[in-house]
Simulated assay, not measured.
Amino acid sequence: MLSRGDDFPIHQTPEPVAFAGTDRNFYDRYFFNGYAPDGSGFFAVAFGVYPHLGVVDAHVSVVRGGVQHCLHASRELGVERMDLTCGPIEIAIVEPLDRLEVRLSPSEGMSAELHFTGRHFPILEPRFTHRIGTRAFMDYTRMTQNGRWNGWIEVDGDRRDLAEGTMGTRDRSWGTRPIGTRDMQPIPGHPLPGFFWQWTPVNFPEGSLFFHVNNDEHGNPWNTRAAWAGEGADRGGIAEGAGSMRTRLASATRWPGGGRLALALPGAPETVQFEPLGRFQMRGIGYTHPSWGHGVYQGREKIEREDIDLDGLDPLLPENLHVQIPVAVTGGASEGIGVFEQLIIGPFAPLGLTQFLDGSA
């Protein structure tokens, strides 16, 4: 099963690039988001390759006027993992680790051309390895990078250039996590596994702040780190440290209503405040989507438009729990903008959540 990748020195095993170990849940994904300086015009992109499921899927989604417009695409992979097209959506790597492009050819009333340039060398997050009982739930690596955007997005004939100063974040992750059709085999002793996740990449004028945490249901972290990258930081110029987040929830939801982050991180403010500016539903790019979940087989090729009324949805339906909240950020004398991503499934004692899907009091 030779492919174009086999002509490049990128092999990690004695096998052709088409193979990625033996775990059916192996994935390789691109993620991007972007927002104007006031948090408006929020958009995001996801592109996933699932070599053992034989599937590629991609999503582009933008918020305008209280509606989240989404374009979903899926196709059969074959063996060519270096073909970064899926229906009308294409990723182009212009300069690895620095400049990338996203193109959406006209489809279902949507099109776009987006250019990303990194503000610093990507940071490598700690490896995410987590088990539920004896079963590996996830084991993956991720790199993250803030950057600047230019380009345009068109929805139903309304073409808008990205606002001057549009910034955002992109990441690349690869490894194993639940994808495709859900595993119906129960895990003995763990009938209601919980999951808590926060991620807050921030663009300050002078640099980029990153914080993430995975906690258990008692609030104990099993993966967390804070990092600071000054403008133009190279591989050796990224500082690492720790943070502790105090979060409030929006009423009757599991969405973040803001928070205060305390940091022990060279170059970064000691405390950072987050205030919401809007909301983006991650189901719009496949995360927890009931029918367009990542890696789900949709047939030989499928493209579908979806429009989400952000004010009309039920915040406690499982597909609506995972959100990215554009936030205004204040750290000392500096003001910035970023996102507050959160997903809470199951009980979480520090926020008073006791059931699988209850909301805040």
Rank of each mutant, 00 (worst) to 15 (best):
G331Q: 01
L249A: 07
R127I: 12
V329C: 06
P201M: 13
A264L: 07
I153G: 06
S360D: 15
T247S: 11
H59D: 08
A20V: 11
D183G: 10
V327N: 08
D216H: 08
L53P: 04
R99K: 12
T85V: 07
T330L: 11
V202N: 00
F42L: 14
T141I: 10
A262N: 07
F356D: 11
E90N: 05
P191L: 05
G295D: 01
R142S: 14
G66F: 05
F42M: 11
F137S: 06
F32R: 07
G133E: 07
V272N: 00
V272P: 00
A229R: 00
P269Q: 08
T134K: 13
T176K: 02
V67C: 04
E301L: 12
E231P: 00
G65K: 05
L124V: 15
D314T: 09
R177L: 02
P266S: 11
M282H: 13
R64P: 06
G299T: 00
L77I: 09
T22E: 14
R159H: 06
Y27P: 03
A227Q: 05
L84N: 10
V79G: 15
G157A: 07
T288F: 02
P96K: 12
E164I: 14
H115S: 12
S208F: 03
Y287Q: 10
V49K: 06
Q355P: 00
L343A: 08
W152G: 04
V339C: 08
A349M: 12
P51C: 11
E206D: 13
P269I: 12
S208W: 01
R159K: 13
L263I: 03
V329M: 05
D156R: 03
R103P: 02
D156S: 03
W255P: 02
R99Q: 14
V79C: 14
D57V: 02
Q145C: 12
V55M: 13
R172H: 09
D161T: 11
I132Y: 10
S3N: 15
P205K: 03
R24E: 13
N214Q: 12
G336I: 02
Q298R: 15
R127L: 06
G295L: 01
R119T: 11
I91P: 13
T85P: 10
R131W: 08
N203Y: 08
E154D: 15
N214A: 15
H218I: 02
G295V: 00
E154R: 06
T176G: 00
V62H: 14
A262K: 09
F204T: 11
P201W: 07
G5W: 03
